[in-house]
Every structure is written in structure tokens, then in C-alpha cells.
Amino acid sequence: MALNTPQITPTKKITVRAIGEELPRGDYQRCPQCDMLFSLPEINSHQSAYCPRCQAKIRDGRDWSLTRLAAMAFTMLLLMPFAWGEPLLHIWLLGIRIDANVMQGIWQMTKQGDAITGSMVFFCVIGAPLILVTSIAYLWFGNRLGMNLRPVLLMLERLKEWVMLDIYLVGIGVASIKVQDYAHIQAGVGLFSFVALVILTTVTLSHLNVEELWERFYPQRPATRRDEKLRVCLGCHFTGYPDQRGRCPRCHIPLRLRRRHSLQKCWAALLASIVLLLPANLLPISIIYLNGGRQEDTILSGIMSLASSNIAVAGIVFIASILVPFTKVIVMFTLLLSIHFKCQQGLRTRILLLRMVTWIGRWSMLDLFVISLTMSLINRDQILAFTMGPAAFYFGAAVILTILAVEWLDSRLLWDAHESGNARFDD
């Protein structure tokens, strides 16, 4: 018995066209964080690309023209004298008006014999932002004059995390709450300039795509075929072959399989920071003279006294001054041990922890910024005066060393310790 099946006739004509040209192939790229070699397709503007294995951002879609970056830099340069030299806060102490600005706080630190601690604050609040705007201006002028731009481009990517104007702005709020127990506070004209400078700096850093600047100024022929001998440069993120001198053909720094002496430098910085954190938390970090009496505060006791007036601000200072430094030390110690013992479990967790400490590390400088600003506000000789204690130097040095330890660690070593050939990683 035959089955009668109805015929289905399409209502619209289906047209099949042959592909007349070869589909576009992607360029081969190595991930600078996990060293995976993959094919990167062509990316349009405002599109980002991520590593298929570790999800690290390979290409950032946010990109401004150099002219727009230069305009932002010149605007920031105009704001800087007002943000640093004009009063941020006014207080009335014992019937006398006192003005506080950024430069005055750094000068008070240096004047009291601790120039190293003052230079830490100076670099993060004044030096690094000033280098940022002058570097962008150098790129703008240098591109037109045919100057060598490689050193500036190499420095810009590392400079971003040292620009800490946003953290200093939080420190202004913390210092205001600490001082309000002794005097009446009012915002100064410099505060508005400083807030504007923070906003412009944040926007500029978020749109400063150094890798795209490398592509514009020093374009290189990408690798179009897969080759395990391809290496990625950690300076400019170019994937290719080393030249005859073993250097990256684009930025001219040595092109090595792994960062040289990464573990040794990381261990040295980490152990030194552990040693410095002990006096930083045991010795007094601030000293207040009130009517001839002397009151010393460690980091913890200062947080407890701050909690009596504002528990939320005390929580912020606790996280930045105690929780973050010790968390960074514990995480980095764990990561280094996992590399030495070739741990194969929990790779995803370790990668996330490394990215976390990379982002939060700079916030530990908050305590030094609060001390710097408070020193310029309260300084009335023996009637009422505020000065920093010996722990300030140890704390600042420990924070900087932990930042350097994270920067010096080559994250690809975590993958080397893991089993080879993993296309995915999980716990």
C-alpha cells in the first residue's frame, strides 16, 4: 500500500549564491595573561575582544583620537594649579581661619623630617597626573615632529594605576569627618577644581587605549598563520617573532617567553612588605597634641575612634588600611606557593584573586592621604596640633611594595603550573 505524501511548494523562490571570495581570516594573537594562541577576527570600533580561555580583555573598544586626548590633557593642565594650590577646605580653629590644600599637606610631611613619605604622596597625587598630561601632550606634538614615541607609550600603561586623584578625593571626605570634632569646616574653591580634575582624569584614563596608539604610530604586520613560536610582548602586546637582537619589532624591548626574574622580584617585594606591615600596624601612625597632652593612634585605634562619629567612614578606612593590605599579602603568598608547588586545582579562583588584588591594591594609600591633609588643617603649635607617627613611612612603603609585587608577577606562570593543553579552566 503506497502512502500519498503531499508536496510542499515554497511560496518564495530560494536563491543560492556561491561564495565568490575567501572568507576573511583572523590574525593570530597570544593572550598576555595566559599565553593562549588564538585567531582574533577583525574588530570594529566600539567592540571589545576577550581571550577565549581566561576571559582577559585583549582589545578595548573604547578609543579616543589623539586630538581629543590632547584637549583633555590641556584642560587638566589648566585645572591643576587651582586643584593643588587653592584651598580645598576652610576650618575655623580657636577663632582663626585655616586653609588646607594639597601642596601644603605634602610640605608639612616633608617639613617634619619625613621627606620619603611626603614624596610618596607627591608622586601619586601630583607627579603621576602631571606625567600623564605631559605624556599625552608629548605624543600629540611628537607625532607631528617625527619624534620617538616608544618610551612614552611604554610608560603610559604602567602609569595608570599610580594616578590616585580619586583616592585622594575620598581622603578629603575622611579628613573632614575627623577634623569636624575640633573645628567648623567649609569647602574651599580649590575643592571644585579638584573634583573637576578627578572627573576629567577618570574619563581620560578610561578612554586612553595605549594598544590602539601603538597600532597608529607603529603598525606591524600581524601573524596570519598559526605558529607556536609566536611570542607576545608584555610592553606593547604585539604578537610576532623577535628581531635579530631578540627584541620586539614594535617597542624594541627584549621579547622573552616569560617575564625575567618574575618570581624572585615578586618574592622579594612580598617578604619586604610583610616585614614592614608589622611596625606599620604596631607603631603610632598619627599623633595629636591637645592642650599640651599627647595622644597617639595606631591604624586600628584611629579607626575605632573614627567609628564613634561615623561608622560608615570608619568601615571604608578599615577596608583600605587593614583589610586590603593583608588580603593582598595572603593572596600573593598563596599564588606564589601554588606556582612553586605546581598546583593544578582552583586555577579559576587564583586568576580571579590576582585580578582582584590588581584592582584594589592602590586604595591602601588612602590613610597616607588623610594624614597629609589633616596635617595641613590642624597645626596650632602646642594648643592643638596633628602630626604623623613613625608607622606612616612603614605603611606607605608596604603598600608600594605590594603594588610592585602584583605588577611583577607574570600571570602566565600560573598556567605553566597548571596542566598543559587546557582550553578551559575551572575549579
Rank of each mutant, 00 (worst) to 15 (best):
M103Q: 07
L88D: 02
R245E: 12
E419H: 13
L213E: 06
W84S: 07
L89F: 03
V174R: 00
R226S: 14
T11L: 14
E419N: 13
I378D: 00
V324P: 15
A405S: 10
F318R: 00
F238V: 08
S206Y: 15
K160R: 14
N291E: 02
L156N: 06
L414K: 03
R247H: 10
I177C: 13
G142N: 01
R158G: 10
P151K: 01
H184R: 04
Q382R: 09
D181I: 01
R53A: 05
M80F: 05
M365E: 07
C31P: 00
S376T: 14
S65L: 03
L384T: 02
L88T: 02
G173S: 06
M375T: 11
N4Y: 07
G361S: 09
L283C: 10
G61Q: 13
R144W: 15
N143R: 15
R294I: 05
G396R: 00
D60V: 07
G421C: 05
R226E: 14
D426H: 13
L414A: 11
D27W: 08
E407S: 08
A280R: 00
W107Q: 15
R221Y: 13
W140Q: 11
T204V: 09
N379D: 04
L276M: 12
P32K: 08
I131L: 05
E86A: 06
T204C: 11
I199Q: 08
T110H: 05
V163M: 11
P32L: 10
I177Y: 09
P279M: 15
G302I: 03
D367I: 00
S286L: 01
L79I: 09
V16P: 05
L94E: 00
C34Q: 00
V357E: 08
A391H: 01
G396V: 02
Y218H: 07
P254E: 11
L88N: 03
C236P: 00
L191P: 02
W107K: 12
H252T: 07
V189M: 12
E86K: 03
F238P: 00
G171K: 00
W408V: 06
W359N: 11
P390M: 09
A280E: 11
V195N: 11
L78G: 07
D416N: 13
A115Y: 05
S305C: 05
C343I: 12
Q7D: 07
L3R: 08
K12C: 03
C236H: 00
A392N: 07
V324L: 15
A49T: 02
D166W: 15
L66A: 10
D297S: 08
R62H: 09
G188A: 09
V203Q: 04
L347H: 14
P41A: 06
G361Y: 01
L354C: 13
L347C: 14
T117H: 02
V329P: 08
A183Y: 05
I91E: 13
I106L: 06
V406F: 10
I106P: 05
T110N: 15
P390N: 00
Q295R: 08
N44V: 05
M356I: 09
G235P: 08
M304W: 11
W408C: 04
S65W: 04
I172G: 05
L373D: 06
A280M: 13
A183W: 07
Q345F: 14
L404D: 09
A18N: 07
I8A: 09
G61F: 12
R424I: 06
G85R: 10
I339A: 11
P219G: 15
A417C: 08
R260I: 08
A314S: 11
D99P: 03
C248W: 00
F192R: 08
L130W: 14
Q186R: 13
W140S: 11
S411Y: 05
F386M: 01
L300N: 09
S39W: 13
L414M: 10
R350W: 13
R68W: 05
G85H: 05
A423G: 14
N4Q: 09
G292N: 11
P129L: 06
G113V: 09
L335S: 07
W267K: 12
M164Y: 03
A320L: 15
L283K: 12
Q104K: 05
L169M: 11
G188T: 07
A175S: 13
A269K: 02
W92V: 03
C54D: 03
T204W: 03
L276G: 11
I319V: 15
I98D: 02
Q295T: 12
P87V: 03
A314G: 09
L3S: 09
A391D: 01
G396P: 05
P279F: 08
S262T: 14
F38C: 05
Y50S: 08
M356C: 11
D381S: 03
F341V: 10
I299N: 08
A128F: 00
L230K: 12
L353V: 14
P284C: 10
L200P: 06
W214M: 15
I136Y: 06
L139F: 02
G240A: 12
I319Q: 11
Y50N: 09
L66T: 10
N422H: 12
M375G: 08
P390E: 08
S45N: 07
G146I: 03
L353K: 10
D227M: 15
L278F: 12
A70H: 11
G105W: 01
I126Q: 08
